[in-house]
Design a protein around this nucleic acid. Structure first.
Lengths: 221, 221
DNA sequence: GTCTATACAACGATAGAC
DNA sequence: GTCTATCGTTGTATAGAC
């Protein structure tokens, strides 16, 4: 039951294990275990021994690959950076072709995570951002990169429909606003342990975007 | 420099110290120290010894008032619940009378905190929400109550301008959306260590609300 | 590369004098 | 109520055999 919680992991396990040599299997296991545990419990609340147990190896192996626990975290965040597109964005884009609905498809993907985890797990990056942005400079930079990549995916999609928005629309700012909404909504859904807060926010966002589109279509083609 | 970081604390210190008997001064010091440190570092990353140093007492005193560290956290969250209105909401409402601008005044208050802390400190409740919502049931409930109180302040203000919105507007959902935006925007501002992300989100929110108001005014008075 | 054993510090919490 | 001293655990990280 726990093993399948994170959709990210399952897909990429199958995709990548073939093309990997035996040598780095342990390293990969550690990164995956780190990702899942940091996501579920946070960075500070996850002990190295938990990671070792989950990855099925001993401390010597971890410290062979990573000088410190923080270096493992950095590897995890780089792993997220590599996997966002193939594992989160592209599956949605394959299923949905309308550029606006693709954005809401991404939001629906995060909703699925809330459903599966009964509102106990949100965005893996968002969690770490609030925990670590202050006192871990290298980590903060990687968190920002992860957010930027997410935002660019949304912006790219919105830009395909740029002619449907009013001319003055700032699509970069609007795509960042989508991310803002998603992160805030996930936070509230977890605090309330209810999907209502998430759905309510997405409804408001959709309302806003529909008004923009309505205005865009009124003012000539 | 550090001591005056949190506006909340300074105001209430002056207001309350008179009406307090000597006996509970230590307890109050502990709650204040806990609030500030949990806000700055998170719950898990703050050690009891740090709290003791900041509060100017020893461990015997803390455990005399609070059976565990978590009980101190609960006292802190109750303290937030008591102080939100007098220390965060009312100062804004005194300064600004327009109900819509009052909402943006609250958002501007959080912006000030980002400015003062150079984007290193966000919402004290939001931080704890992502860190603790999963595995601390009593804490999660109090976090949700804090969010609800904040949302109700916004909703009360919007409701004073309800005749300016389209009839179909769901003001409860809209006020929750304001909170969603604020929390998401604070998170991104901290990750990017820049006010731009915050300002961008508030601009989008204002744009949305202005469109609602425009539609409300068009459809008759 | 991976193992076992362990160093060493910090943690939350307790005991008992005053 | 507050103090000092300390218990027992857990944390990250290391050493050295294999």
């Amino acid at each position: 039951m726990q093993a399948n919680l994170i959709l990210l992991i399952d897909r990429s396990t199958q995709n990548r294990s073939d093309e990997m040599n035996e040598q780095n299997a342990t390293r990969e296991n550690l990164v995956r275990a780190g990702f899942e545990l940091f996501h579920r419990q946070g960075y500070g609340a996850t002990s190295v021994s938990q990671i070792l147990k989950s990855a099925g190896c001993n401390s010597g192996s971890l410290y062979y690959f990573f000088p410190t626990k923080e270096d493992l975290l950095i590897a995890v965040l780089n792993w997220c950076l590599e996997n966002l597109w193939p594992e989160v964005i592209e599956p949605v884009f394959e299923r949905i072709s309308d550029p606006i609905e693709r954005v809401f498809g991404i939001l629906d993907g995060y909703r699925k995570m809330l459903v599966i985890t009964e509102c106990q797990q949100g965005c893996p990056i968002g969690n770490l951002a609030l925990e670590l942005a202050d006192n871990h400079p290298r980590v903060r930079e990687l968190l920002a990169q992860n957010f930027s990549q997410w935002r660019q995916a949304v912006e790219g999609s919105l830009r395909m429909a740029s002619d449907r928005f009013p001319e003055s629309t700032d699509l970069e700012s609007l795509s960042l606003f989508v991310l803002t909404t998603m992160e805030g909504a996930v936070m509230l859904a977890r605090a309330y342990r209810s999907l209502d807060a998430y759905d309510s926010a997405v409804t408001q966002l959709r309302n806003y975007i529909e008004r923009l589109l309505l205005e865009g279509s009124t003012w000539g083609k």
